[in-house]
């Protein structure tokens, strides 16, 4: 299973050396839900939005987006419909369901708590007694 890992590019010393970072369970799902909360989008748009917003630091390993999207669809957090794109191609457009919106809210809270907790640990200078 590769879907839970994304490739992080770093532009420092090593140049463009891809490094695999295991994302926490549900992180990619969370990012997708968030992007879809702005409105319906196809998979490519979701990929671009995530790329833009994470400043290319955290770029979705593109392909892994699709199994994730379909799994969200299976859980009925997103729903999809086929539309014809401006280039006259069949395009599958995803949209957040009410249940997905609730899920996003809940996960956001959890994520914030998590970041907070990890941050606290990392900021601590001394070993706790």
């Amino acid at each position: 299973m590769y879907t839970r890992s994304i490739v992080a590019y770093t532009s420092n010393l090593d140049g463009y050396m891809p490094r695999t970072v295991d994302l926490l369970q549900g992180t990619l799902d969370l990012l997708i839900l968030k992007t879809l909360s702005w409105g319906p989008a196809h998979g490519y748009a979701v990929a671009r939005w995530i790329e833009t917003l994470t400043g290319e630091v955290l770029r979705v390993g593109e392909g892994s987006l699709y199994p994730a999207l379909h799994r969200l669809e299976e859980r009925e957090w997103v729903e999809s419909s086929w539309q014809i794109s401006s280039t006259k191609r069949r395009t599958k457009v995803y949209r957040l369901t009410p249940r997905g919106r609730q899920q996003l809210k809940a996960e956001t809270g959890t994520w914030a708590q998590f970041v907070d907790a990890v941050g606290k640990v990392l900021k601590t200078e001394e070993r706790p007694v």
Binding site: T3, E62, P67, H70
Partner: peptide, 23 residues
């Protein structure tokens, strides 16, 4: 390159879809 292993993605996605259809 950016997309990654397209065959694996395809297979995985297809499996999920079939599960959805069966359900």
């Amino acid at each position: 390159t950016e997309f990654g292993d397209a065959d694996a993605v395809r297979a995985d996605t297809l499996r999920i879809d079939q599960r959805i259809i069966r359900a």
